[in-house]
């Protein structure tokens, strides 16, 4: 992993990591008032962790967000979304009826939308991180030069590109 040894990339990644996450949270929870929402926020937050993994290596990325955390986010988002819907049914409303979530229908809609968007954000973050880890991990297992079974002969001429990822 040559990228870890480049001081410019390393320092830039360290400086950018937290602001990207803060921006993602802003997009997530400010979606009611400006452009944005769960889908975009999920991608932005995942981008911060992917940047970290790109610069400091996949191992460091996996230590930061282990595989079970990815899967938990993946499933947790759908569960949160569904739970909001079921909560509406429990409170004598319909599935995904936010009006009954609070004493005031307008407030209930606010709660419902924020929770649902949070679920979407969780799932999207989980999926993006899981995909990146899966692809990059697959490359690392199969294409590291010198590793057993790696760099598959002439068929994969560009296999060295895998090192950058």
């Amino acid at each position: 992993m040559a990228m870890r040894d480049n001081p410019i990339l390393r320092v830039t990644a360290k400086i950018l990591f937290a602001p990207i996450i803060v921006f993602g949270l802003y997009v997530q929870f400010h979606g009611d008032y400006g452009p944005g929402g769960g889908f975009q926020a999920g991608v932005i937050i995942a981008a911060a962790f992917i940047l970290h993994a790109l610069i400091f290596g996949l191992e460091a990325g996996r230590r930061l967000v282990p595989g079970w955390a990815n899967l938990a986010m993946l499933a947790g988002g759908v569960i949160v979304y569904g739970a909001v819907g079921v909560a509406g049914m429990m409170l004598d409303g319909l599935f995904l009826d936010y009006n009954v979530l609070s004493y005031d229908a307008s407030k209930g809609q606010h709660y419902g939308i924020i929770l649902v968007e949070f679920g979407v954000g969780l799932t999207v973050t989980g999926v993006m991180l899981a995909l990146f880890h899966a692809f990059a991990g697959f490359a690392e297992a199969h294409y590291r030069p010198g590793a057993a079974g790696g760099a598959a002969g002439g068929a994969a001429g560009g296999a060295d590109d895998g090192e950058g990822v």
Binding site: P35, Q40, L54, G157, V165
Partner: peptide
């Protein structure tokens, strides 16, 4: 916003990660 984040951002990174299995050209 979605197009910029997903299309230009994440997709590019995922394509690069997937490209590791392919020949360069």
């Amino acid at each position: 916003f979605t197009e910029a984040a997903v299309g230009a951002g994440i997709s590019t990174v995922l394509f690069l990660a997937a490209m590791a299995y392919l020949p360069g050209a």
